[in-house]
């Protein structure tokens, strides 16, 4: 331990909880098909990891921090990923979010729904939801903290 953040309790809990929470968020996102969880919960978990690092280490840490401006931009990017999945299927001749028309060679026969292709489409949508929820939570915390720091 080279540098401590506050007390030893904060230091050790930061070193254990933050990496565990981030990896658990990724696990919940990838395993959301067959277990409880999904995009919203995974995004909230990832945001909790970043927010804990922000609260313990302060705004000047460079490892786990996401600034307010890039948080807003990335939230928009997450929404765009969701919409792009739908638009790709529309451009290929299907309806909005018609997963059978996704351009992957897992096996699509004229819009017939295959389970692997369906899972892939859900994965892309959940990626957009995860990014949007995570960055929105981080941005709300950023706004609240900055408003208290000014006064």
């Amino acid at each position: 331990m080279k540098k401590k953040y506050g007390s030893s309790v904060l230091d050790i809990s930061f070193r254990i909880i933050t990496p565990f929470t981030l990896i658990y968020g990724v696990y919940v996102y990838l395993n959301g098909e067959i277990s409880p969880g999904g995009g919203f919960q995974a995004g909230a978990l990832l945001a909790v990891g970043v927010v804990l690092a922000r609260l313990i280490m302060g705004a000047e840490n460079k490892i786990y921090n996401v600034s307010g401006r890039s948080a807003v931009i990335l939230a928009g990017v997450g929404t765009f990923i969701y919409a792009l999945t739908g638009w790709v299927t529309m451009l290929r001749g299907g309806k909005f979010l018609d997963y059978g028309f996704l351009p992957f060679a897992i096996g699509s026969h004229g819009g017939h729904m295959w389970p692997a292709l369906h899972a892939t489409g859900i994965l892309f949508i959940e990626l957009g939801v995860t990014l949007c929820v995570m960055m929105t939570i981080i941005d709300i915390l950023d706004v609240v903290v900055e408003r208290t720091d000014i006064e």
């Binding site: 909230a44 945001a47 909790v48 709300i140 915390l141 408003r147």
Partner: peptide, 24 residues
């Protein structure tokens, strides 16, 4: 369990928000 998971995560997040807002 899905709703329970959401409630657990959002409980943590809202507690953090309230504590941070209490600074002001």
């Amino acid at each position: 369990p899905d709703v329970a998971f959401t409630e657990a995560v959002i409980g943590v997040v809202s507690t953090i928000y309230f504590v941070v807002a209490l600074k002001k």
